[in-house]
């Protein structure tokens, strides 16, 4: 068990393994993404209340559910960085943060597009999900800017690890406090997005396909970015130099 865990700490091992996994993951990603997008945008049936806008929701729900995974990933990677001082964990944390900010921004954007049709407004403070997603986006940006402000990469790694753990706890508290804020202002929100999932398999199967596609997209992107980061940080080591020379 521990040997298996320690092997993840080796950049070379990760580079080799991810090199073998990437083609498969990319293939699966393309499959799920094409099926999911085509199904979601062309074939999801019309809802009797929301008409064709449920098709936006399929994409939106997938992006949103993926964007919730980023802070936990960063907190776990941060814990590994602080406790076991594993370089790989920090490389992953570094590549995950900007992607998380993108996913949060896309969640907000796709949500607003849907909201502009269904709610008649692009932004609604009284929806707790919008507000808490906005603050998750802000916190991710603060982690990214802290990393770019600190020059020494080891200090940056540990400082971002602490901020990620604190931020992860904070995102949960923000989520609950925002919900609590709204239940008092606007009880039993009629705007709840859960109404969409009541549509049965015609809605949730394509949503599931899209969710899997988005998680695969995250995995592929994180792996590729982490490989770049490995090459950048390990550029002095022998195996990277051999690799670069062989590629020429």
């Amino acid at each position: 068990m521990w040997q298996w865990f320690h092997r993840w700490g080796s950049p070379k091992w990760f580079y080799d393994l991810s090199g073998r996994w990437l083609p498969w993951l990319t293939g699966a990603l393309i499959l799920f993404l094409v099926v999911g997008v085509v199904w979601a945008l062309l074939f999801v049936p019309q809802d009797y209340q929301q008409s064709y806008t449920t098709r936006i929701l399929v994409v939106h729900v997938a992006v949103a559910s993926t964007s919730l995974a980023f802070f936990p990933i960063m907190a776990v990677a941060g814990t590994i960085t602080l406790v076991w001082k594993m370089k790989m964990a920090d490389m992953v944390a570094k590549t995950v943060a900007p992607l998380g900010a993108w996913f949060s921004a896309l969640t907000l954007a796709s949500g607003s597009i849907w909201g502009s049709v269904m709610w008649g407004t692009w932004w609604e403070w009284s929806d707790s999900r919008l507000t808490s997603m906005l603050f998750q986006f802000f916190l991710l940006i603060s982690v990214i800017s802290l990393r770019s402000a600190l020059n020494d990469s080891e200090t940056a790694a540990k400082a971002c690890a602490v901020l990620s753990i604190v931020g992860c706890v904070n995102v949960v508290i923000i989520k609950y406090s925002v919900e609590w804020w709204n239940t008092l202002h606007q009880p039993a929100s009629a705007l709840s997005m859960n109404s969409g999932s009541a549509n049965g398999p015609a809605f949730w199967v394509p949503t599931l396909v899209m969710v899997i596609a988005m998680y695969l997209l995250m995995a592929v992107h994180v792996m590729m970015a982490t490989r770049n980061e490995i090459l950048r940080r390990e550029s002095r080591s022998q195996w990277v130099q051999d690799l670069v020379l062989a590629a020429k």
């Binding site: 603050f135 802000f138 916190l139 940006i141 603060s142 800017s145 802290l146 402000a149 901020l163 604190v166 931020g167 904070n170 508290i173 923000i174 406090s177 925002v178 609590w180 804020w181 008092l184």
Partner: peptide
């Protein structure tokens, strides 16, 4: 600026509870 970016989003729950 970076201090403000880190602290202000984190203070939201306090702000909500206080104003409520």
């Amino acid at each position: 600026l970076i201090l403000a970016m880190i602290i202000l989003p984190m203070s939201v729950p306090v702000l909500i509870a206080g104003t409520l």
